[in-house]
């Protein structure tokens, strides 16, 4: 009986949290207009969310592309199909690894920082203080961060995939001797703009939305103690990872399922 009672309690807790999260998202989106009036708020957040994530994204993209080049070459050369290396690297990056790995890195780098920042602001009464100064903390603090996360994600994914493709080319034709022309032409002939690039872009938008939402809500919903903030930060990374991978499966099934 204890087990079911526990399960019921957990379920109820999960649902109320989802409800709070939905309201939170609603108020966050309601504040969008304030960004139009004050673009500087957004610009500052683009810096801490986007620019500061650039380095880790670029380096990871380079290495992922290089590894794909190596692994792909060894597998493809067994079939005498080294020329399709470009296709393999680009398809894996553009469809899957670009959006998913960038989003996971983004959750670890920017998402956890956002949660900790908002959580600490709550713990040190900064949000409450703002409210007492008649400033809506959601509009002033949350919305700009949300928009910055949502906009940064596709840019970071673009950076990641582009650098990855170049990294694959570096290893493939630079070290392993795949013909450079074949690398690019096989890629161009088979990567479709709408099916692959646009779908990857949509994925990145969805991931940016979900990671920013989770990170900010966890921060806002923190128990205002140092333990609470640390738990919330962990939850951000874990829940983001689950959501990214689960949504990736659903999106892939929807996008690439037909053909």
């Amino acid at each position: 009986m204890d087990f079911f009672q526990h399960l019921g309690k957990e379920t109820r807790g999960g649902f109320t949290k989802l409800g709070r999260g939905t309201f939170f998202l609603f108020y966050t989106l309601k504040g969008l207009f304030s960004i139009v009036v004050r673009p500087r708020l957004l610009l500052n957040q683009m810096y801490s969310v986007g620019v500061l994530s650039c380095l880790i994204i670029a380096i990871s993209g380079l290495f992922v592309g290089m590894v794909l080049g190596l692994q792909g070459y060894y597998i493809l050369s067994d079939f005498g199909a080294e020329e399709t290396l470009g296709l393999m690297v680009a398809a894996s990056l553009v469809r899957e690894l670009g959006p998913v790995v960038s989003a996971l890195l983004f959750a670890g780098r920017a998402g956890s920082a956002l949660t900790a920042e908002i959580g600490l602001m709550k713990a040190t009464e900064q949000l409450s203080g703002m409210e007492m100064m008649a400033v809506d903390p959601i509009k002033r603090i949350i919305t700009p961060r949300f928009v910055a996360g949502f906009l940064s994600m596709p840019l970071l994914v673009g950076l990641f995939s582009a650098i990855g493709v170049l990294g694959g080319q570096m290893v493939g034709s630079g070290m392993l001797g795949v013909d450079e022309g074949a690398y690019w032409s096989q890629m161009q002939a088979n990567i479709d703009f709408y099916d692959d690039i646009v779908n990857g872009f949509i994925k990145s938008l969805v991931f940016g939305f979900i990671v920013s939402w989770i990170a900010l809500f966890e921060g806002y919903d923190t128990v205002p103690t140092s333990e609470g903030v640390s738990r919330a930060t962990t939850r951000t990374v874990v829940n983001s990872a689950f959501s990214i991978l689960g949504l990736d499966f659903i999106l892939t099934a929807l996008m690439f399922g037909d053909d």
Binding site: L43, Y47, G50, V51, L159, A162, V165, M187, Q188, A189
Partner: peptide, 29 residues
Amino acid sequence: TQDTLVGLFVAAGIAGLFFLALQVSNLSS
């Protein structure tokens, strides 16, 4: 400097997306 860096970031991201669209995919063809 912050503005400049944000500008560079946005430009690099958009350049990456354009690179994917034009150089990697069949859009141009």
